[in-house]
Design a protein around this nucleic acid. Structure first.
Lengths: 341, 341
DNA sequence: AGCTTAACCGGAAGCGATTTCGGAAGCGTT
DNA sequence: AACGCTTCCGAAATCGCTTCCGGTTAAGCT
């Protein structure tokens, strides 16, 4: 249905040269007289010729497409990561193909397979972590497909990682709460099926231990990365016989859920309960009170991921990159010393 | 670098048939004996063969990719639209290529050109509206490329539209404020460079006129679709000699900005000032007070857009579709009668 | 038995680019 | 004048698939 678009042949004919020559000026290879080059360029412009990347891809085995498999584009943090990827991909004339897994384990595998069958030149994946997924990644990497993983690690020369120091971030957050005087600090943890939460738990634990505190398993609850689930998790916490005086949530979405649950219970933040989140999404500023949280450079993560992926595509035996970006505690008004000691 | 992947030839050899036959079972065309078909399928499975869509695309002139040009994937409303598109695209084995314009006029044109040069089978675009963009869309549609536009209209047999009754939604919102007793109702309008705000202004105006009120140009301010810009716009409103008692914002982002500005000015919501937004993003629930807003079925918009695009791709001379979905006022706690009359 | 027809399958062309190989022309050197 | 190098360009093969056209075989009909 789409009308015939002009081919390299027609350009060649018009310029009075061979396809070979046209191809050469297109990819400016080899030497070509300034004059013929000019003639070809003129023909290209007159005809409005645009090379067909499909045909090109067939022979070069490159598509100039990268794939992004993401759990949930609706999470503002991940949307920002996507924006970063989009930026650098576009600036390198790469297109981005997105696939959402909605946190369903087997859909990660499905996504990777799908995008590879579409012949993307490389893949960025975040953030689930399943054994099956890791196996597939390893397998595909062994077949030469480059990967960059965000926030998780797989050991193979064709897979790089960009992540953030989430453990350090969690440590900062928890320490801050401790320094305010809190002793019963709950942690809303990423549910095991999300992968991804190990570092934060470690940072949380270390901070507590440094203060000579035991971690109380009652104070650790699992949640999906959503407001609703954060709400549910917090309700469980509030029902405890001796509830926490502070909640450290695995991300801002769950923290927002916590805020809503706390408010619904008729308690006040931060007077009755402090809460801190993770990610510093834009909406962390618009809660009441504004959310204390650990910021992650989402845009930079995306850009870095895309940048290293493009490098890996360009140079096949590049050594694996391991980039770790910093997290910073940003203190707003959802935290204060506990009411009574 | 990517290892050689097996081709249809090897499958054919292994199954002891011709490529033609393999191709036929792949696309289940023509008649093939159950027995040969089984043999071919077995060969495919044994070899783990996956057809190369690049090669296929070269001859069929279809890529099974659709393009999505979006102003800002970071806007939760648009992220939800994207999710809807992703859903139905994936379920039809189409992949989605996303391009962001960041609301820069010329980048819309760039995005459309880019995606078409990549040979996508069709395009979904939202929401900017520039003359140049419209011209290009018209031009490309005339070349047979199918489009579906979200929230805007271009008249051509190859371009369909899915939109929402924003005028009716704005009318409901404004009427509600009027019924509460408000008379000075400001409107934060989508800045002209965003396109897209005409309907809302109309609904707003009609509601006012129905109450016998003039629209006061001082009460209409323009803003980009961001929290920050909504904040700035609201600050201007608050500096008015007789400020409004209610603000109807063009979307939830600007409404959130309004809430922040109002609070920063030491005023209370809804006692001193009511605010209503548009879209009903998830974070409209997490502001304090929760935001009264007009909901739009973002997910459905995306799904409908993708669905009609796929239909247009499948049947070249399908009549244009015009789908209009409903908006509903959802009343939360950011609105109340004005303090004094 | 002989002929038509339908069912099933294969050969080869072609999609639009890149790339290999080699040829022609121009130039300097001996 | 002959030779060898560059420099510039073209012919043709190739990538992996679909599709057109036609051939073979078996079934059906008279």
């Amino acid at each position: 249905m789409v009308e015939h678009s002009i081919t390299i042949q027609e350009v060649a004919k018009r310029a009075g040269v061979s396809q070979t020559t046209v191809s050469r000026v297109l990819n400016n290879k080899d030497e070509i007289t300034a004059e013929t080059r000019a003639r070809v360029i003129r023909a290209i412009e007159q005809l409005g010729y645009v090379p067909n990347p499909i045909a090109r891809g067939l022979v070069t085995n490159h598509t100039a497409m990268i794939g992004f498999v993401v759990s949930d584009i609706t999470n503002p943090f991940l949307a920002d990561v996507a924006r970063g990827i989009l930026h650098t991909a576009a600036s390198h004339h790469y297109s981005l193909s997105i696939f959402m897994t909605e946190n369903e384990p087997q859909r990660e595998v499905q996504a990777i397979r799908f995008l590879i069958s579409r012949r993307v030149d490389g893949l960025i994946v975040t953030p689930r972590e399943s054994d099956e997924g890791n196996r597939l990644i390893l397998n595909m990497a062994a077949h030469g497909h480059p990967f960059v993983l965000i926030g998780r690690h797989v050991s193979h020369p064709r897979v790089s990682t960009v992540s953030t120091s989430t453990a350090a971030g969690a440590y900062k957050a928890t320490s801050y709460l401790l320094s305010l005087g809190h002793r019963r600090i709950a942690h809303i943890q990423a549910s095991p099926r999300m992968g991804y939460g190990r570092g934060k738990l470690r940072g949380y634990t270390e901070a507590l231990q440094e203060y000579g505190l035991q971690v109380d398993p009652d104070l650790i609850v699992a949640s999906d990365f959503s407001i609703e689930d954060g709400q549910r998790a917090s309700e469980r916490l509030l029902r405890l016989s001796t509830p926490p005086t502070a909640i450290f949530a695995t991300n801002d979405l769950t923290a927002i859920g916590a805020i809503m649950a706390i408010e619904a219970a008729g308690l006040r933040i931060p007077e009755d309960l402090s809460v801190v989140g993770f990610d510093d999404i834009i909406f962390a500023r618009s809660t009441r009170p504004p959310l204390t949280t650990v910021s992650q450079p989402a845009l930079k993560i995306g850009e870095a991921a895309a940048e290293t992926l493009l490098q890996m595509i360009r140079t096949p035996n590049m050594p694996t990159q391991e980039m770790i970006l910093d997290c910073d505690l940003v203190i707003r008004q959802s935290t204060s010393p506990p009411r009574s000691r």
